[in-house]
């Protein structure tokens, strides 16, 4: 039950984040460039790709097919690992930024708090890992067939 809730929660978070970002690729591009990790071409690619990847990963978590759920959780694990790595990298380099993770940008331009971002991302990483590795009792229905 807890893992099912975790799965629904992750799906909701990722679908919401995607729907907030998909309409605004220009803001997403600026946010990606703020990390100073990739050049502009890759920032444009990421501005279009990441929101859609988040959307399909979130939707995959709701699919009634077990491998798709695991695949979606695996992709989210990968995305969160990437996000955490670039956050730590930016923090270590003393960069201040707005991550734009949910498409919100403060009007006063105040930078995000890296500690809060990392705690949030680590929490999502743990949830995704739990969904991927542990699955749900209903998923592992091999025993019920015996």
């Amino acid at each position: 039950m807890i893992l099912k809730l975790a799965r629904y929660f992750l799906a909701a978070v990722f679908i919401a984040a995607a729907l907030l970002k998909i309409p605004h690729p220009e803001q997403m591009k600026t946010a990606i460039q703020g990390f100073r990790v990739v050049n502009e071409s890759w920032a444009v690619f990421g501005a279009y790709f990441f929101p859609w990847m988040e959307f399909w990963a979130g939707a995959g978590l709701l699919a009634p097919i077990i491998p798709v759920k695991r695949a979606a959780a695996f992709i989210i694990l990968g995305l969160m690992t990437l996000f955490i790595a670039v956050l730590i990298s930016a923090w270590a380099r003393g960069i201040t930024l707005n991550c734009g993770c949910f498409g919100f940008y403060p009007s006063n331009g105040a930078p995000d708090d890296f500690r809060l971002l990392l705690v949030r991302d680590l929490g999502l990483w743990i949830l995704a890992a739990a969904v991927f590795w542990r699955g749900e009792p209903a998923d592992t229905d091999w025993h019920s067939k015996r």
Binding site: V44, W52, M53, F55, W56, P67, V68, A72, I75
Partner: peptide, 25 residues
């Protein structure tokens, strides 16, 4: 295979999105 399919879906949607709204950037 499922992960590849999800990634491919995201790539197709992102590409279509870019082609339909090239001026968005």
């Amino acid at each position: 295979l499922s992960a590849s399919a999800l990634i491919a879906l995201a790539m197709v949607c992102a590409r279509a999105d870019y082609c339909l709204r090239p001026a968005a950037l």
